[in-house]
């Protein structure tokens, strides 16, 4: 187990440096720079421009900037945002809980609907239900998130008035942030009704963000179930007269879950990518919206620091998935 962990970490180290190089290079390849992005219609003399760039340390040669950046990261300093002049790590930590909360709810939504839908489709293979569920999941998978979000807002918020349009909490409440996770903070606060408001604000964005993972989970569950259902032990279980619920639930689903869990783990990246659009539509104060805004304003330090932090999160989750996978299926620990 320990050697397996070391092995995985050794693989991750070059990945991490690759990410730092990409995030550093990517934002600098884009035309423009933070000073130009700030200046609007105004023209600056080359001297003014150069002196402002120098204030940001962007006058140094690229290799020196990169070495400084790596050196700072290794000391836990992810840079200072050009726009807000705050440490990038502080901004990230302030916004990250909102993204995690949204992604978790979206994942719960996707699993709760997607898993049963996939099982049902597999059990009712080649019937109207199966085709219906697979058809809907294909639509869900191809749904443009931005359009889908606006459509739900117009229907549920504007026409039916059932859900709030955007934001995380009604402005009637002023909840002191403790953990950053509003569902927890509202429970801790003594503002009555604030928890309901927080939950209420999560409904639409969770549905929008959860749609694509839901479709993927439903399709993967179906195909994994179909594979397992054709196995000999399932036939044996049927032959010995077990109730269908036991055949599907105990024998088939358990074995199908190995594939499904892996797929669910892989959705972390999908969720973070989807969060960029979902957070923009729903004015959700998370890291997706922050990164996009930082790219547009050429806030080099926020982009490079933010991307590395996100990559670190994804890498940690993948490592965790690998480890749990190894625990579920011990053969993997030995074959690598």
């Amino acid at each position: 187990m320990f050697s397996f962990l070391l092995n995985r970490l050794a693989v991750l180290a070059p990945v991490f440096f690759g990410v730092t190089l990409l995030s550093f290079g990517f934002i600098r390849i884009l035309p423009g720079d933070p000073v130009l992005a700030l200046s609007g219609e105004r023209s600056m003399t080359p001297e003014q421009h150069a002196s402002l760039l120098a204030k940001l340390g962007l006058d140094k040669p690229l290799w020196e900037q990169y070495l400084n950046y790596i050196g700072d990261i290794l000391q836990g300093d992810f840079g200072t945002s050009v726009l807000t002049n705050r440490p990038v790590l502080d901004e990230f930590l302030e916004l990250f809980p909102a993204t995690v909360e949204l992604a978790t709810c979206a994942m719960i939504f996707a699993i709760v609907i997607g898993l049963p839908a996939g099982i049902f489709a597999a059990v009712k293979r080649r019937t109207f239900f199966d085709q219906g569920i697979m058809g809907i999941s294909l639509v869900g998978y191809s749904m443009p998130i931005f359009w889908w979000g606006l459509l739900l807002i117009i229907l549920f918020s504007s026409i039916l008035g059932l859900t709030p349009v955007s934001g995380r909490l009604s402005f009637m409440f002023d909840v002191e942030p403790v953990t950053g996770f509003l569902l927890i903070d509202t429970l801790l606060s003594d503002e009555k009704g604030s928890f309901a408001s927080a939950l209420h604000h999560l409904v639409l964005p969770s549905i929008v963000l959860g749609t694509i993972p839901l479709a993927i989970i439903a399709r993967q569950t179906r195909s994994a179930m179909l594979e397992v259902l054709s196995e000999d032990y399932v036939r044996t279980a049927r032959a010995k007269g077990l109730a269908p619920i036991r055949v599907y639930g105990l024998h088939a689903l358990r074995n199908a879950m190995i594939t499904v869990v892996t797929v669910i783990g892989l959705q972390v990246g999908v969720l973070l990518a989807g969060a960029i659009l979902t957070e923009t539509i729903f004015s959700w104060p998370g890291i997706g919206k922050w990164i996009i805004f930082s790219v547009f304003s050429r806030d080099y330090f926020a982009v490079q620091g933010g991307l590395v932090l996100i990559a670190l999160c994804i890498m940690s989750v993948n490592l965790l998935v690998d480890l749990t996978y190894g625990l579920i299926n011990p053969r993997i620990l030995h074959t690598r």
Binding site: I154, G167, I281
Partner: peptide, 20 residues
Amino acid sequence: LVFAITVDASVRYQKLKAGE
């Protein structure tokens, strides 16, 4: 006075309509 930060113009309009 509250500034509800809402980046997308269409969403701002929906919030205005909903009285938010």
